[in-house]
Simulated assay, not measured.
Amino acid sequence: MNFASRHVPGALKLSQEMAWPYRREDWEFAAMVGQGLALERAGEVIGTAMWWNYGEAYASAGMIIVTASAQGGGYGSRLFDGLLHATDGRSVLLNSTEEGLALYKRRGFTAWRTVLQHQGRLTVAMPPNGRDGIRPATAFDLSAIQACDERAAGMPRSSMVAALADVGNVVVIDHAGGVAGYAIARRFGRGYVIGPVAAENAEGARDLILAQLARLHGQFVRIDIYAERGLGDWLEDLGLARVGDATAMVKGQRPVSDGAARIYALANQSFG
């Protein structure tokens, strides 16, 4: 059945069983900006699968969970096949744990990059970023931020970016009156997550991240990055340890960036 608000408490229980750090608010936000399926048994939620449409050509999938007592009964395949049916015609992106790789490969997904999860309590105070061009975003910047994200991600994510900006703090790289990069920090899980981060080069991405970290001294911070962007060692030096990784997979066409900007950090591993 379609995921509804009444499924949130059961979905939260599922993610707690998996030791995933989602709060009730994180489930509510994910359901508000996306769509999903829920499986129930005797009135109890035993499985979920969520997706988020990005234009007519792409979707991201995540929060795919089956309770331990129901695993091995085909519920995971049933949920995932329902997700693929609902997103039919779109290329689907997801980030897989080691345990999920076999299922996704059987459904035609291929690996194309690696996501690194960095996190920790920020114990070193970061000075306010002094680089020229880094500034807080205003409401008037939203359309330019959405356009920057679309060029960097290679797919239109305007609704998702607007929703993230509405609940988070946004900083931008202002270049000649235009937005050349942006970063959002928001409450998520055990503390805060920084992402998405889009920039034209690694220096710009680091400056945007530092601008966000300057506000988060003493807070628990998580950043999920693409491994090939080269920020991992730098985050380690800041005290944000690498604690895990995931395999980015796609069924269909990979999105292709348009221009110099690239995505350096994800909103989270479900949204992309």
Rank of each mutant, 00 (worst) to 15 (best):
N2V: 05
N2A: 12
F3H: 03
H7T: 04
V8D: 00
P9S: 12
K13L: 15
K13G: 14
S15C: 12
P21V: 13
P21E: 11
Y22S: 07
A31W: 03
M32V: 09
M32Y: 05
G34T: 02
A38D: 03
R41D: 11
V45T: 04
G47T: 10
M50W: 10
M50T: 09
N53S: 04
G55N: 11
E56S: 14
A61Q: 03
M63L: 08
I65V: 13
A70Q: 11
A70W: 14
G74S: 09
G76M: 10
S77A: 14
L79D: 06
F80L: 08
L83R: 04
H85I: 06
V92F: 02
L94T: 15
N95S: 13
T97F: 03
E98D: 06
G100I: 10
G100Y: 00
A102T: 15
Y104G: 07
T110I: 04
A111T: 11
W112A: 07
W112P: 07
T114N: 06
V115E: 00
G120F: 03
V124A: 12
M126E: 08
P127D: 12
D132S: 13
D132E: 12
I134W: 01
R135N: 09
P136W: 01
A137D: 09
F140W: 03
S143V: 08
A144L: 13
I145E: 07
I145N: 10
E150P: 00
P156W: 02
S158W: 03
S158D: 09
A162T: 05
A162Q: 13
A163Y: 02
D166P: 02
V167E: 00
N169K: 15
H175T: 04
A176F: 06
G177N: 08
A180Y: 00
G181V: 11
A183L: 09
I184Q: 01
R186L: 12
G189K: 05
G189Q: 15
R190H: 14
G191D: 02
Y192Q: 03
V193F: 01
I194W: 01
P196F: 11
A202T: 11
D207K: 10
L208Y: 05
Q212I: 11
A214R: 01
V221D: 03
V221K: 10
V221S: 09
R222W: 00
R222S: 00
D224Q: 03
A227I: 05
W234I: 09
D237T: 13
G239K: 10
R242F: 00
G244D: 10
P255W: 02
V256Y: 00
A261K: 06
A261L: 09
Y264L: 02
A267G: 13
A267N: 10
Q269G: 01
